[in-house]
Write a protein that binds this DNA or RNA. Structure first.
Length: 346
DNA sequence: AACACGGGGTG
DNA sequence: CACCCAGTGTT
């Protein structure tokens, strides 16, 4: 029995029931694939259901505000996915007259859709013979064929894509692609896979050569930078505060936060006073201020550790663009901020 | 080619 | 703590 048939047989027995497997609607397939980029099924599933429920068609998504889409995306991370989703929905509705791209080449033109996602949608929704290569596929192929080429090197990316293209079952591309990914997720797991129950245990090169725990090979690890964030939580007697949209390039673009002052180190109250935050907000008359968290809250992202202090600042009045504290939760904000809002309670 | 981009889960 | 996750866009 050949590789793809064996995989498909395994899949027919072991596959999970997932809502995006109950449809061929390209819009729903697209939604699920974007949500699942760098995201585990367990984490993405409730977001998928929320998006399908709130935006049942691409037209609903296209006419929504970016803020409402980011609000529904809140907590999922990699927020450019949500912004690109909106951009592409408008492109489909406005430029393509609502006709969803129906092949790999045209799908690739959508913002936020790269080689993997274009292949996934083309195969799953339209049964196009386009091989997917995601983290699961890299792992399964590198182990089964015993390939130690780094999966994130240029040659590795090219070679694995070529190999995947030779293996795909051309009669059942949709099923094959989902089968190999599901196999990687459930059987050929990153850590401690149970190879004794694996259907490929007799032909797997990694198992034969005891390389299961070192494959796939990946270049370099992420280096983490440390940053120090001071959030200014203004409160006036109208129960209003300042909440700003992040327009800068880096993390959390277009999400909302309390006014932020970044420092070179963790500040004491005295140092914070010396820093004289009032310089940043000349027009605001400060009555009193205090530190909410004595110990820094360390918010860990994959490439940054954010050491955070929340300064509670009582003020007499605030500028016109202040918003009611009660309405804070209507805005999309980073988990770090929404957690604070919930715990502080105001 | 290297890096930035989130947050949750696992061993 | 290190690594992984149905990757993509930018530099």
């Amino acid at each position: 029995m050949d590789f793809s048939t064996k995989l498909i047989n395994w899949y027919s027995v072991n596959k999970r029931e997932l809502p995006w497997r109950e449809t061929r609607n390209p819009y729903y397939i697209w939604l699920s694939e974007i949500i699942l980029q760098q995201t585990q099924v367990k984490q993405g599933l409730p977001y998928y259901n929320a998006f399908v429920s709130k935006f049942p068609t691409v037209f609903d998504l296209a006419k929504a505000s970016e803020t409402s889409i980011l609000k529904l995306w809140q907590g999922l991370g990699y927020y450019s996915r949500a912004r690109n989703l909106h951009h592409s929905a408008k492109y489909i509705v406005d430029t393509l007259d609502g006709k969803f791209p129906d092949n790999y080449k045209d799908l690739l033109k959508l913002k936020g859709v790269g080689d993997y996602t274009a292949s996934a949608i083309a195969s799953i929704a339209y049964n196009e013979v386009a091989a997917v290569v995601d983290g699961n596929v890299y792992r399964v192929l590198s182990r089964y064929f015993g390939i130690d080429t780094p999966i994130n090197s240029s040659t590795g990316i090219k070679d694995f894509k070529t190999l995947a293209s030779t293996l795909i079952n051309t009669n059942q591309p949709a099923t094959y692609n989902q089968a190999i990914m599901e196999f990687g997720a459930i059987q050929c797991k990153p850590k401690n896979p149970d190879c004794t129950v694996c259907p490929f245990q007799d032909s797997c090169m990694a198992r034969k050569n005891q390389m299961v725990d070192v494959l796939p090979v990946k270049l370099k690890k992420t280096k983490v930078t440390v940053k120090y964030f001071n959030f200014l939580v203004f409160i006036d007697h109208h129960k209003k505060t300042l909440f700003e949209k992040r327009t800068t390039k880096g993390i959390w673009q277009h999400l909302y936060q309390f006014p932020l002052i970044e420092s070179k180190k963790s500040l004491t109250a005295e140092e914070f006073q010396l820093l004289n935050f009032k310089e940043h907000y000349l027009e605001i008359e400060v009555l009193d201020y205090s530190l909410y968290n004595e110990v820094d809250i360390v918010h860990k992202l994959s490439h940054q550790h954010l050491h955070t202090k929340f300064w509670i600042i009582d003020v007499k009045s605030l500028p016109k663009d202040a918003i009611l504290i009660k309405s804070l939760t209507k805005y999309p904000s980073p988990v770090l901020i929404s957690d604070f809002i919930e715990q502080f309670g105001f």
